[in-house]
Design a binder for these strands. Structure first.
Lengths: 171, 171
DNA sequence: AGGCCTTGGTTCAAGTTTGAAACAAACCTA
DNA sequence: TAGGTTTGTTTCAAACTTGAACCAAGGCCT
């Protein structure tokens, strides 16, 4: 089948999106690096933890919420632990598991950084959008995210299908 | 002034956006790494070059179009040059300048990779959106990008203001 | 219990990004 | 035209990300 190239409208949207997402992540990373000494992802880790029951979460759950790989998370958590922002604890139910627990210091750092962060998100993003556009952005983003997560799940399910033994022998 | 926190609608939009942008970049990076052996940014460099007059562009212009730092570009171009995808040439007008020129091999690689890339962009993004949403996405992205670029320009202009000599001596 | 696959996490090397510093050419301006 | 600033680009070290490989521990069978 011949490629269905992007229409001019799609091209414009795609380019605008790429520029916007790059610039936005940059702006946010820069602000947080300045004011909190950590990149956006690291701040997000603290943020997610702070909203979790008992301010702690298992590594895999944390990775899932943040949509990042476990390996990336391991590295980040190691750094944050070194900085005293969180502690690693053993999981009581599952001896394999480890849970990240926000420390009081981590929580304090988060509280101190939050206003500046919110202000940046506001001035970079929401101040430029109408209320209607905020709703549109949510719907669009949700649609994309949902699709990609289904893809991921499907891919995982289909993984190494050649290992499945079919009951009727058809190669 | 007390912080204006995000409204629930804004929070939802922000979280959905973050998830979507992470997942999307991941999907695209993975596909291109698989099929073309390079991350998205590197592909974009080739792509921008291929659409430029004579398939060449000065480093700064390239960085500007891609919204990345010059230093990041230098690294990427070095790799791409090593791989034979492009060549660095001296700029005739400005002896400081260097221009990146797409090689025939680079163009060929690009042509081979393009269909798969477009297919991924389509299935990850545009297939999930209505025509209307594509338009909305463009407008939203353009608004964000425009705002952030103005900010960047303003910040650059205001840089080291203490060096400016005011005509009337006021401190 | 003894295998075997899966799951939760970490480790390691290679690749990439960051930001500040270094350089050199170009551009003032006195 | 010499000195000082700006502009274009690279360099360097430190930080971060990636993906594959690894190591337990948990869950099934049989």
């Amino acid at each position: 089948m011949t490629t269905r190239w992007l229409t001019p409208e799609e091209q414009r949207a795609w380019r605008a999106y790429m520029a916007a997402s790059l610039l936005l992540e940059d702006a946010i990373d820069r602000q947080l690096q300045q004011d909190a000494g950590m990149p956006h992802l690291y701040y997000s880790i603290l943020s997610v933890l702070s909203e979790s029951p008992e301010r702690r979460l298992r590594m895999t759950d944390l990775a899932e919420r943040l949509k990042i790989t476990r390996s990336r998370l391991t590295y980040a958590v190691t750094r944050l632990e070194k900085d005293g922002m969180l502690r690693r604890e053993a999981c009581r139910y599952d001896k394999r598991g480890s849970v990240a627990a926000l420390t009081d210091e981590g929580f304090a750092v988060l509280e101190r950084a939050a206003p500046g962060h919110v202000e940046t998100v506001r001035s970079s993003l929401f101040d430029r959008l109408s209320e209607e556009q905020v709703g549109q952005l949510e719907e669009i983003s949700a649609a994309i995210a949902q699709g990609l997560q289904e893809d991921g799940a499907r891919a995982a399910a289909d993984e190494v299908p050649w290992r499945r033994r079919s009951s009727t022998a058809c190669s």
